[in-house]
Design a protein around this nucleic acid. Structure first.
Length: 491
RNA sequence: GCCGCCUUAGCUCAGUUGGUUAGAGCGCCAGAUUGUGGCUCUGGAGGUCCUCCGUUCGAUCCGGAGAGGCGGUACCA
């Protein structure tokens, strides 16, 4: 061995990225198609924008000289302009709407499906590249627009195959908490954000944990201290009462919220919006158990200005180790009335919902709803004799012409390995054209599914091979009808 | 980002009190079976023992640094 550096690169996927094969992709494509159909039925137009945006269009995560790659994958173009891979589909929508406002039908309703990228610490089920599916309405401030987005999300989950009761869509309104805080004398933006963050942790830390985070702060088990919002107890108690108001049906929740936010103009406005959303949901036929009001929903984002939505998976799930898997949100969204104004200076009301496609696929799998069946392979034409490749190719072409997936085995292994190949591909049939068949003007088609069934009961290899189960030899002209019989059975 | 644990074959993992050829199961390939998937048997391939630096006659093992993975926490568009 020399001390020269190994010139061979290591085959590996970059951190936070995954390779995904046919079966997974098929499942995801089914989901996307189902949800897209729902969106189209509601009158939403498909829009695609590029993967890159100029960094300033992406908003607060824009790179600057000090940390050009914070949170996003960014690079500098030839003209020194920073561009970055989009981290969601909403920022590109805001840019598109601002750019094309004059020519768009208003309100503008579009859905979008595409990859987004985030340069952050990957975790289980959390990658640096993933597919999102969004629907947004830009240019309507009616609460009915929010309700419609929620109704589409509910229908989307149903269309994707998530059963009723497996999830719940929680609805809240930022104006409620804003109004509440204002009437408690909390005006500082940083403090408001800290309150939102604390409220967001209700499901994980419980009421007492949130109380600590609303006040001075909280010391967790590992000894790390999280600074709180610094609210006085007199201000924290109404917040705690507010976030506890969520149990029960939609109108009962509204009644309880009304008591807490009474006297605040912004709170009353938020309440009125929720009331109209609730009425519209009723008209859409969205049940109380599918979409409810929950004052503890936050969505963490600064840019939401009104209604916020979050879909949570309820079904009992298990991770691979058998423990209870925490799933958390499987989608979310809300109203963002200021996002387009970043470009135009004019307030443009907008509302939307977004879900992660692979997260939903994982949710379906976890609730036992996904068909994880392996894709069926093609009919495999066994290649026994290199000199006969053209014959094999025409057999395959004939089958493809008749509408079957078919391929000629292109490796160099023998018959046994070729049969194993067809078996692993889950092919329904193998076509054998050997010397015997050629001499007799025949072709042999083997039913692999039948063999799979019979194999379990066979213990003697000689018999297994000798019986040749499901194997039919017939005149070559009958190829297509033989395959049709066998493959028809397989479907 | 911070704290803790972990990293040996494609996968799951043994093991070496620091010593010459590092193992198992599963998987993969081949033969038994000139042209037939499964079972069984036999054989084979596959390892920088995460990387670098240090200690040592000698390091997969000890020390340090780094990378990657897992869990918690923070952040989350």
């Amino acid at each position: 061995m020399t001390s020269k550096a190994d010139p061979r690169p290591k085959a590996r996927t970059p951190r936070g990225f995954v390779d995904r094969r046919g079966d997974v992709l098929r499942a995801e494509r089914r989901i996307v198609e189902a949800v897209s159909q729902v969106y189209e039925r509601f009158g939403f137009e498909l829009l695609e924008t590029g993967a890159f945006e100029y960094a300033d269009a992406l908003g607060k995560f824009l790179p600057d000289a000090d940390r050009p790659n914070e949170g996003v994958f960014a690079l500098q173009d030839d003209d020194d302009e920073w561009m970055a891979l989009r981290y969601d589909l909403t920022a590109p929508l805001a840019r598109f709407v601002a750019q094309n406002w004059e020519t768009l039908p208003k309100p503008f309703r579009r859905y979008a499906v595409g990859k987004v990228w985030r340069d952050e610490k990957p975790g289980p089920g959390r990658y640096r590249e993933f597919v999102q599916c969004d629907a947004d309405t830009v240019g309507s401030e009616r609460p009915e627009a929010d309700a419609e987005i929620i109704a589409m999300a509910v229908e989307g989950y149903a269309a994707a195959g998530l059963p009723r009761g497996a999830y719940v869509l929680k609805i809240n309104n930022r104006k409620l908490l804003n109004g509440l805080l204002a009437s408690c004398g909390v005006a500082d933006e940083g403090q408001k954000l800290a309150v939102l963050r604390a409220v967001d942790k209700l499901d994980r830390l419980g009421r007492d944990g949130v109380r600590l985070l609303l006040g001075e702060g909280r010391l967790d088990e590992s000894g790390a201290f999280t600074r709180g919002a610094g609210l006085a107890p007199a201000a924290a108690e109404p917040v705690l009462a507010f976030i506890a108001a969520g149990a029960g049906g939609r109108s009962a929740t509204l009644d309880r919220i009304a008591e807490v936010v009474a006297g605040s103009a912004e709170g009353e406005a938020g309440l009125a919006e929720l009331d109209r959303i609730g009425a519209a949901l009723g008209a859409f036929g969205v049940g109380e158990e599918q979409a409810l009001f929950d004052p503890s929903v936050v969505r963490g984002l600064e840019y939401y200005t009104g209604a916020v939505f979050e879909a949570e998976l309820l079904a009992e799930t298990q991770d691979e180790a058998g423990g209870g898997a925490r799933f958390g949100a499987i989608g979310g969204g809300g109203r963002y009335d200021d996002l387009v104004a970043r470009f135009t200076g004019e307030r443009t009301p907008a509302t939307g919902f977004s879900f992660g496609v692979s997260r939903l696929a994982a949710a379906l799998a976890a609730s036992g709803q996904s068909e994880t069946s392996q894709a069926r392979g093609p009919v495999v034409v066994i290649a026994l004799d290199a000199a006969r490749m053209t014959d094999y190719q025409s057999l395959a072409a004939e089958l493809r012409g008749a509408g079957f997936a078919a391929e000629v085995y292109l490796g160099s292994a023998g018959m046994k390995a070729q049969m194993r190949y067809a078996d692993r591909r889950l092919s329904p049939a193998a076509v054998i054209l050997g010397e015997d068949e050629i001499a007799a003007g025949q072709v042999t088609v083997k039913d692999l599914d039948l063999g799979r069934q019979l194999a379990a009961g066979v213990s003697d290899n000689r018999a297994w091979r000798g019986d040749r189960p499901g194997q039919v030899t017939a005149p070559r002209a009958d190829l297509v009808s033989l395959v049709r019989q066998i493959v028809g059975r397989a479907r």
